[in-house]
């Protein structure tokens, strides 16, 4: 059916501002999702300050630091890719996104080795050594695995999002004039980064 009259405020036309607003609202929900975990962390840390300190000594600060640098760098490259496409340089934009995805992979690989080391030391819930830990330390590791695990899932989702966007840039459906989806993927990636910026000191640095 041919539709002759289109409203000026139609919901079917491209609206970058609506898309951006929607993305920001979604990011609020993500922050609150982790917010619930931060509350749990706060309560249990204040109840078991010494045990949390003891348990945190098991983490490898170096690996955490490298991962922080990797994520911050990837946040920078995704921001640069947005500027690149706004200036009309899709090829550069694609390259920068590729670096971002590469950084995400590096982050996950380091994370894999970190978790692997913990499991090797018997620190996974239910293992023998884990059972010998104090209650507070057990809670610390529950939170550590739950929060970094959930964050890791977000890294994977963000990677997929960016790969989808890269595909669209290749096809030309994301371009100089129409690039809100790329910006949204960038916003999401910054969120992933932001949450890590909080997780890192909470688990690795506080003494």
């Amino acid at each position: 059916m041919e539709h002759s009259f289109v409203l000026p405020n139609s919901g079917h036309t491209y609206d970058a501002k609506a898309s951006k607003l929607g993305m920001w609202l979604f990011l609020y929900t993500e922050l609150l999702l982790f917010g619930g975990l931060f509350i749990v962390y706060m309560v249990y840390r204040s109840l078991n300050p010494d045990a949390f300190l003891m348990a945190s000594l098991n983490l490898n600060v170096w690996m955490g630091t490298v991962n922080t640098v990797v994520l911050l760098t990837s946040s920078m490259t995704v921001a640069m890719s947005i500027t690149a496409i706004q200036l009309g340089n899709s090829k550069l934009s694609l390259k920068l996104l590729l670096i971002t995805v590469f950084a995400a992979v590096v982050f996950l690989v380091i994370k894999y080795f970190e978790w692997g080391a913990k499991i090797e030391h018997g620190l996974w819930p239910g293992m023998e050594h884990f059972g010998s830990l104090s209650h507070g330390e057990q809670l610390y590791f529950y939170l550590y695995f739950f929060m970094t695990g959930l964050h890791g899932l977000h890294v994977i989702v963000g990677m997929i999002f960016i790969v989808v966007v890269m595909n669209k840039i290749k096809k030309g459906s994301i371009n100089k004039d129409k690039n809100q989806l790329l910006e949204n993927s960038g916003l999401y990636w910054h969120l992933v980064d932001l949450i890590w910026i909080y997780l890192f000191p909470l688990f690795y640095l506080i003494h």
């Binding site: 982790f34 819930p125 057990q138 695995f145 739950f146």
Partner: peptide, 20 residues
């Protein structure tokens, strides 16, 4: 989102033994 994460913690406790 708050109940979302809370319910996930219940699931984690039942399935993975993460007993928060």
């Amino acid at each position: 989102p708050i109940i979302g994460i809370t319910l996930l913690m219940i699931v984690a406790e039942r399935m993975l033994g993460i007993g928060l």
